[in-house]
């Protein structure tokens, strides 16, 4: 979804146009293709295994999709401003460790404290990227190593089971409406809120604007460095949310619990149609992308594909999705 409306404008397909333009609103296939892929995937899996369409397995898909969705949403902000955050999954792992360590003593306050801490961690990464003026992938790679080590030290490199205080987070998975867990409901609500904020607030499009042309944004008085910092802060916050859901689902915290979600989360953002060149994308797209990624994983298992092939598929999917969504008119030299 783009932040500004009127997708109905009948604009001609600009692919053949020689102008270096990327109309966000003029490429309906970009928004519909991911949805089409999702539908096709679900159909294919149900043909292979009709039981897939039962409520049970769909709930499994939805629950598995939540951490990926949340990490993907965080990644979306960073991708919108033209960067990438390689540290987000490691931050989710850190969250599980912090939550599992603090819950017994602090109860619900542990969640607030963790989210604040994770946001600050994200802001630090963002500030280093924005004011250090260095590529985001290096700084976030450094952050990945650093915070990964912190997780290991804090946890003593073991899994921490949550029993005392689990009530503060168990409602995320145990409670819900009509079999749909509250984590799912809250996440979808979050998607809607992000969409509404981007669309209906004065500065809601600021991530898009900075991603489309950071220099022009700077010259128009937009505090682009702050915007980038905020994007990483949000990525940290959402990594925290994803970590809390993971802790609730696993009833434990571990220093590498969420690490494997890095690629699925990036895949969710780019498969949904967020271009890593920046400026294009939105929360609904990430939702679709997260579902595609999860159906691919669950459906693959259902259809009898060796789960060991998962990483190969994710790797290929990410490259393919980036290749399809990247906006080459804006990159004269690709490094």
């Amino acid at each position: 979804m783009s932040t500004v409306a009127t997708t109905s404008t009948p604009t001609r397909e600009p692919i053949s146009s020689s102008k270096p333009a990327t109309p966000r609103t003029a490429r309906p296939w970009r928004q519909l293709l991911p949805l089409g892929i999702l539908v096709a995937l679900v159909l294919a899996v149900s043909l292979a295994e009709p039981a897939f369409l039962r409520t049970n397995s769909l709930t499994v898909v939805a629950n598995q999709a939540i951490p990926i969705l949340l990490l993907g949403l965080g990644q979306m902000f960073v991708v919108l401003v033209g960067g990438i955050d390689l540290s987000s999954a490691a931050l989710a792992s850190l969250t599980t460790v912090l939550v599992a360590t603090w819950l017994p003593g602090m109860g619900g306050a542990a969640l607030v404290l963790t989210l604040v801490a994770l946001t600050v961690v994200g802001l630090i990464t963002g500030a280093l990227v924005a004011w250090g003026q260095v590529p985001s992938f290096v700084i976030s790679l450094g952050a990945l190593g650093f915070w990964g080590a912190v997780s290991l030290v804090v946890s003593g490199s073991t899994t921490i089971y949550v029993s005392q205080g689990y009530g503060s987070i168990s409602w995320l998975t145990n409670m819900g409406i009509a079999g749909v867990s509250s984590a799912i409901i809250l996440s979808v609500a979050l998607v809607a809120v992000i969409w509404a904020v981007m669309r209906y607030t004065p500065r809601g499009n600021v991530f898009h604007v900075v991603g489309l042309n950071e220099r022009a944004a700077l010259m128009a008085g937009v505090r682009a460095r702050w915007v980038k910092t905020a994007a990483f802060g949000l990525s940290g916050l959402f990594a925290g949310l994803a970590g809390i859901v993971l802790t609730a689902q696993q009833q434990s915290g571990a220093p590498q619990l969420g690490d494997a979600l890095l690629l699925p989360a990036i895949a969710a953002a780019v498969v949904g149609g967020c271009a890593i060149t920046g400026g294009i994308g939105g929360p609904w797209r990430v939702l679709v992308g997260a579902l595609v990624v999860t159906v691919l994983r669950v459906g693959g298992a259902v259809a009898g594909i060796d789960p060991n092939y998962q990483q190969i598929i994710y790797g290929a999917v990410v490259i393919l999705a980036v290749a399809l969504t990247i906006d080459r008119t804006r990159l004269s030299i690709i490094k």
């Binding site: 500004v4 409306a5 270096p20 333009a21 990327t22 109309p23 966000r24 609103t25 669309r199 209906y200 607030t201 004065p202 500065r203 499009n205 898009h208 604007v209 489309l212 042309n213 220099r215 022009a216 944004a217 010259m219 128009a220 008085g221 937009v222 400026g279 294009i280």
Partner: peptide, 27 residues
């Protein structure tokens, strides 16, 4: 390069510096 945001709409470009006051701005 510096004067406009290509890819964004004309309305967004016009509203770039002064996007409007208040918490909510309807498109």
């Amino acid at each position: 390069v510096e004067g406009m945001v290509g890819g964004a709409t004309v309305a967004e470009n016009i509203a770039l510096v002064h996007p409007g006051r208040g918490p909510v701005v309807l498109p």
